[in-house]
Design a protein around this nucleic acid. Structure first.
Lengths: 237, 237
DNA sequence: TCCAATCCTATTCATTCGATTAGATATTGA
DNA sequence: TCAATATCTAATCGAATGAATAGGATTGGA
C-alpha cells in the first residue's frame, strides 16, 4: 500500500505587474485618506498584501510611489473624459458641455481621491503641489476655462468669470463625494449610491444651465451609453 | 570713573494665555495644511516660537491640542454668523438668507482651515471625525437644511434636495479659497484679494438665486455694515 | 539542466515622532 | 522677604518611520 503524497500545489507567483497595481491601489487610497506624511509605507504594504520592503523594490522611494499613483489616477480621468467625448456623434456643443461636466461628477464619485489629493497637497512651499499643478491640473484647467468662456459668450450660463466657474463647479461637483462619510452621518444618504450620484449631477447641471428639457434627454442618453441602470433620484427630500 | 553697567532689561514673561493663543494659531495652520498625522508637535512649537514640551504643558496631548484648536475655530465661525444675523433689523427673510450665505463665503476666505480640516478628517473609521461631526458640523448642517427647505418651498432657489444644496454650496463657496495656492498658479488671481472674495460671493449667490437687483443692494448694505471698502470685482474675465 | 534575472521576505539601520522627566526662571501672595 | 506656584527649557525615553541590506524562491532562456 502506497501512500500517495499529493504534490504540493505549484506555488503560483503573481505577476509583478499585478502586484504593482495592487500596491498603487492601496497607496492611492491611503495617500488620499491620510495625506502623504500620514500614510505609512507599512500600512500601504499591509493593505496591498505584501511586505514593506517590496514597495522600495517596485518604486524608488515613497515620493516615487506617490507620483506613480497620482499619474495613474489622472491618466484614468483623462481617459474617461476622452472616451466620453469620442463616443459622441452628431451632438451639439451645449450637450457635449453638459455631458463633460456630468462625466467629471461621475468620476469624482468613483474616484474622490482626485479631489482629496489636490486638496491635501495644496499648501504653501510644497514641491509635490508644484509638480501636480504643472503636470496634471494645468491642462485640465485650461480646457475648462476655454469651455466656460464659450458657454458664457453664448449666454448658456450666467456671466461669471471662468476661474470662479472652475472652482464653483469642481467644488460643487466633488465635495459631497469627498465628504461622503460625513454626508452619510449627517443626512443618512449614501452619496455613492448610483441614484444619489445621478441626482447630484442633475442638481449641478440645473443650477448652472437652468431647468431645461434637454438636460433630462441628455442624461437619459448618457445612461444608455453607460449601460448602467440608474434608480430614481427622488424620495430623499 | 565708574562704569555704569546697565541693568539687564527685566525679562518679561509673556502671559500664559497669550502663549496658548499663539500655540493654537500655529497648530490650526499646520493641522489644516499637513493633516493631523502630518503636523509634528515640533513644527507647531517652532512656528509658535516656543519649545516642543511646552505644548504638553498647556495641552494634555496632541489630540487635545487639535480639538482645542478646532473648538476655537468653530466658535469663531458661529460668532461671525450670529453677529451678522443679530446686526440685521427689518430685513426680509430672503435677504437674510443671502447674507448668511455670503458670510459663510467670507469666513471660508478668511479661515480656509475650516473646510480643510473637515476634508482631512473625513475618512472611514476616524474617531476625530465622529467628534467633529457630532459636536460642530451637525448643528450647522441642521440649520442650513432648514434654511434651504424654506427657500425651495418658497421657490426662491431651484428645487434641489437640501443635502445636495448643502454640499453644492459649501463646495462652491469654499473650494477656491481652500485651493488658493493652486488658484494663484493656474489663473494669476489671488483668491484672498478682497475684490476676488466679493466677486466669488456674487457669483455663488447669482448662481443660486438668479440675477436680481436685490442681490446687489444687499451686498452694498453688507459692505456698509462691515465697514470694509470692497473693490470692483470686474476686470479679470 | 543550469545559470541568471526577476520577484519577494526577514532583519536591521539611522532618524524622527509624541511624550516624560528634572530642573531653571519668573511671578504671586502672605 | 521668602516660600509657593506658574511658566518654560534642556535632555531623554520608547516607539514608529522610510530606507537599505542580505538572502530565499520562482521563472525563463541557453
Amino acid at each position: 500500500m502506497t501512500i500517495s503524497i499529493p504534490t504540493p500545489p505549484r506555488q503560483q507567483r503573481p505577476s509583478a505587474n499585478a502586484t504593482r497595481e495592487r500596491i498603487l491601489d492601496a497607496a492611492l487610497d491611503l495617500f488620499a485618506d491620510r495625506s502623504y506624511e500620514g500614510a505609512t509605507t507599512r500600512e500601504i504594504a499591509a493593505r496591498a498584501g505584501v511586505t514593506q520592503p517590496l514597495l522600495n523594490y517596485h518604486f524608488h522611494s515613497k515620493d516615487d510611489l506617490w507620483s506613480s499613483a497620482v499619474d495613474r489616477l489622472f491618466s484614468q480621468f483623462n481617459q474617461a473624459l476622452n472616451a466620453r467625448r469620442d463616443g459622441l456623434h452628431g451632438v451639439d456643443d451645449l450637450s457635449i458641455a453638459k455631458l463633460m461636466i456630468r462625466e467629471f461628477i461621475y468620476f469624482s464619485a468613483a474616484h474622490p481621491q482626485l479631489h482629496r489629493i489636490i486638496t491635501q497637497e495644496c499648501k504653501a512651499d510644497n514641491a509635490r503641489m508644484d509638480w501636480l499643478v504643472q503636470t496634471h491640473v494645468r491642462p485640465l484647467y485650461d480646457t475648462a476655462v476655454s469651455l466656460f468662456s464659450q458657454l458664457v459668450a453664448r449666454g448658456e450660463v450666467p456671466a461669471i468669470a471662468p476661474t470662479n466657474l472652475y472652482y464653483i463647479l469642481t467644488g460643487a461637483g466633488a465635495t459631497m463625494f469627498v465628504l461622503a462619510p460625513e454626508c452619510r452621518r449627517l443626512s443618512g444618504i449614501d452619496p455613492m449610491d448610483p441614484g444619489a450620484i445621478e441626482a447630484h449631477a442633475d442638481a449641478v447641471v440645473e443650477l448652472l444651465f437652468g431647468p431645461s428639457a434637454s438636460t433630462r434627454a441628455i442624461r437619459t442618453t448618457h445612461e444608455q451609453t453607460r449601460g448602467t441602470e440608474m434608480r430614481s433620484a427622488k424620495g430623499h427630500l
